[in-house]
């Protein structure tokens, strides 16, 4: 009986918490170009080699803030030309533009660089 009650309680808390996560407002990227760019990011599976906010594959570098660090032309040349490891991607001008819009949007949501955080005594971190 107690076991069932604990289970029901946990499931209810989980439901409420999920609702909270779903409804929390954050930076919106509803611009159609950003959306289209995100789909290209997914369709080309950039995430297999790259990370956003440190999440993704580790063969390549994190690209969260590549837009502000290096600018659109730099991104363009990597995507079109590839590198020893990264394949060159054949994209139309429009697709390339959207992809860059997406990376610009990601850049605007925050910074992924771990160096910008300070560590508190209780183990938590806060952005500097």
């Amino acid at each position: 009986m107690i076991r069932r009650a604990v289970l029901v309680l946990l499931v209810c808390l989980f439901g409420v918490y999920s609702g909270h996560i779903y409804l929390t407002p954050t930076t919106d990227g509803s611009d159609p170009a950003v959306q289209a760019g995100k789909m290209i990011w997914q369709k080309k599976n950039c995430t297999a080699c790259h990370q956003l906010y440190g999440l993704g594959g580790f063969l390549g570098p994190d690209l969260t803030n590549i837009y502000s660090a290096k600018g659109p032309d730099y991104i363009k040349s990597f995507v079109q030309g590839g590198t020893a490891t990264m394949p060159a991607f054949i994209l139309s001008d429009n697709e390339l533009k959207s992809l860059i819009e997406f990376l610009k949007h990601v850049d605007e949501t925050g910074r992924s660089d771990p160096r910008r955080f300070k560590i508190n005594l209780n183990g938590t971190i806060a952005s500097n």
């Binding site: 929390t24 954050t26 919106d28 990227g29 509803s30 949007h105």
Partner: peptide
């Protein structure tokens, strides 16, 4: 769903959740 898709922070939170 566009509600999740268009918002990268929400999308990544829900994905890892």
């Amino acid at each position: 769903f566009p509600y999740f898709q268009r918002n990268i922070v929400r999308d990544m939170s829900v994905q890892w959740k």
